[in-house]
Structure formats: C-alpha cells, structure tokens
Design a protein around this nucleic acid. Structure first.
Lengths: 197, 197
DNA sequence: CCCCGTAGCAAGCGCCTGCTTGCATGCCCT
DNA sequence: AGGGCATGCAAGCAGGCGCTTGCTACGGGG
C-alpha cells in the first residue's frame, strides 16, 4: 500500500473519531506511519486530504440489492434490511461525525446521490413492484414507506449503543419486528414470520 | 437575565453550531456579550460551562403527552408525532452535534433518562393500552413498534434538510403516511385517514 | 554512474487555544 | 459615605494548530 493510501485511510479513521478540528495533520500522519510533511506534499492541505478521503470512503459503500422480481417479501426485505443495518453499524462513527459537521463543512460530503438516497430509490422500486404484483394490498406511498423503514434502521444503528434504555431488545429480534410491522403496514400478508431468512 | 444565563445560552448555541472544539471560550463570551474572564470566574473551565449548559438544555425539553385512555388512535398518534418531530427539528443542530461527539465527550450528555428514552416509554405504554383495549388487533412488540415510529421521525427530522433526494415529499404528508403505515402495522383500523388532527 | 523523484528530519512561522494575573471601575447594600 | 462584589481591560503564559523551508538520504532508470 502506498503512503498516499495509508494517509487516506488514516484520515477517515481519525476524522470519524474526533471530527474535522480534532483530526490534526500531525495525528493523521502519525496514525498513517508517515511524516507530516509527506501529507502536505501529497495533498497540499488538510482540507483537500479530508475531502478526498471522505469521498473515497463514501464511494466504497456497497448498497445491498433487492430482487427485481419479488417472490418472498418477508425474507427478501429482512435480508436487505439486515445487510443495510450492518453497513450502517460498521460506518456509524463516520456517519455520526459527518452528521454533526455537515452544516459546518458541507463541502466534505459529496452533495448528490448519497448512499441513503440510492438505497431509498432501490427500496422504492421494489415496493412499487410489490404492489403492482399484488403482494402489497394496501394503499401507500412508496417513498414515505421506504423512509419509515430506513429511518427505523438508521435510528436503531445510531442509537442502540447510546440509548440502551430505548433499545433493550435483541438486535436481530428488533430487526425482524421492524420488517413484520412494515410489511403489515403496506398490506403484505406474511408467509413465514418465524422462519429464517 | 444574568450574565450567567447569557453565558449558558450562548454556550449551547455555539456548541450546537461548531461542536466542542469549535466552541472556544472567546467565542462563547463574545456571543454572550460578556468578557471572557467573566466566563472563567463563573464556571471555572470551558468543560464545566458546556456540561452545565447542555444539561440544562436537555432538562428544558418538554415531551409531548399521549392520552391515558385511547379514543381516536389516528388523531392521537398523529398529534403526538407532530409535536415530537417539531421538537426534534427545533433542536436538530444540537442533537446532530451531540450525536457526533457523544463517543468523544460522553460526560457532556447526562447518561440516563434521556428525552428519547422517556418518549419511547410513554409511547410504549400507550401502545400497550391500545392493544389491551382492542384497538390494535395485531400481535406486535411495543418497544420495537415505538422504535420503528420514533426512528422514522428522528431520521426524517435529521435528514430532510440534508438528503433532499430522499425526502422530496411534503413534511406534513410524510408524517401522516408514517402514522398511517405504523397504525396499520400494529393492526389498527383507521377511522379518519384523510381528516385533520 | 549519476540523476531525479520520493521520502525523512529539524526547525520554525504566525496564529489560536484554555486559562491566569494585576489592576481599575462601577454598582448595591448598609 | 464606604465596603464589598461583580465586572471589565490589558497583557500574557505554554501549548497546539496548519503549513513552510532547508537540507539530507535513498533507490531505480537513463
């Protein structure tokens, strides 16, 4: 791995932990195992380094997929939600920091086509097919419905370790219950609410 | 208003905007309209000032109430959700900053009985009565159900101004749809899904 | 063999940080 | 009138910040 990549990785790591002001060039360079001057020779400034590092980290996010042709809604949505929430949990330190600083440093985060927006689009399309194929019998708005489920997954992944009073149940059981409630909300009769995915 | 209160108010305001490291004692004092030295004479240190300011701001949060005896679930939950999301939106800068720094400065936020945990408890109790009284006919877990709705409200209030792609619908219409989906999910037949609260 | 790009080291620049000291000023209560 | 108390001003401390300069060392391709 080149020094450049070491610096980029250390930069996201440190930024996720201590934010923009806390991520000093000395500390990033130290965590990357290179000299601070090498940082400036490669990126010119702290701002440019952090911008590139965060953009790269965001581009590396892989969104879970939903089948084009729905067959078993409960299993499919559960599996999608599980993958989605795992991704959120893994990146939660970075997400939290970005959320806290997005108003102060909007330039650090690429403006359009962010991961949650892409995931919402995919879920919306799946829900539309679900209704068109007669699996979802209720009258509902797909974008609000996907925001409901994704919002619950987001809040769970961000809050579970911080507000234990509120999330005292088991993560996996909570996940299944979210999906159960959600599918019932859009009018899906569930095939196997107790089985595995 | 005493200088002490001016300092406390300026401290939360500046902290919400620029975080712990950005909230310098000079800036807080300047925004409060008092001398920096007065800050140290009153609170001793920046840390003590911020701790007291944030604790006080959190104590001042008033949670919306739910009726003890459910009568019109849709109207009642909608009104509660509306008040709850309004509170979140008003405090969203502070909430975002706290979220981003809770791992680094856990001492700033009082550990137990945080506002969302209290709200979740209240909603859980309401949902239990809803089921006991036969209004909610589905088999569901109250704590997961309340986490579902509250998570959606939380994510909406935090993300609407930041991910416009995902929240392109109108806030009020989205809110009604969250409540509609949620109530259908717990097995409530809705009385007036189109009427006002 | 030498040359050039990449790297490190030591030092430092001006600025900001939290916090302190010394002293003067005003106001309220008695 | 006078004594205390809260406040302000000027100045400064040591330390950290982003970033720069000058110089040296290495290692592969002409």
């Amino acid at each position: 791995m080149t020094h450049r990549d070491q610096l980029l990785q250390a930069a996201v790591r440190v930024y996720a932990e201590v934010g923009y002001r806390g991520a000093t060039t000395r500390r990033i360079a130290s965590e990357a195992g290179v000299n601070e001057i090498t940082l400036f020779r490669h990126f010119g400034s702290k701002d440019a380094l952090l911008r590139e590092a965060i953009n790269r980290a965001e581009d590396a996010v892989v969104e879970p997929a939903l089948p084009e042709a729905p067959e078993a809604p409960f299993a499919e949505v559960l599996e999608w939600a599980r993958r989605y929430i795992v991704g959120l949990r893994e990146r939660r330190a970075l997400i939290r920091t970005c959320m806290g600083e997005i108003e102060e440093h909007p330039g650090l985060i690429p403006p359009e086509g962010s991961p949650p927006a892409k995931a919402a689009k995919a879920l919306c399309r799946y829900l539309r097919r679900l209704r068109d194929l007669g699996h979802a019998k209720a009258d509902f708005d797909e974008s609000a419905a996907s925001a409901l489920l994704m919002g619950a997954l987001f809040a769970d992944s961000m809050g579970r370790d911080v507000i234990p009073d509120m999330y005292s149940n088991q993560p996996e059981e909570a996940l299944r219950e979210y999906v159960r409630l959600f599918l019932r909300g859009i009018g899906v009769e569930q095939s196997d609410p107790a089985g595995d995915a």
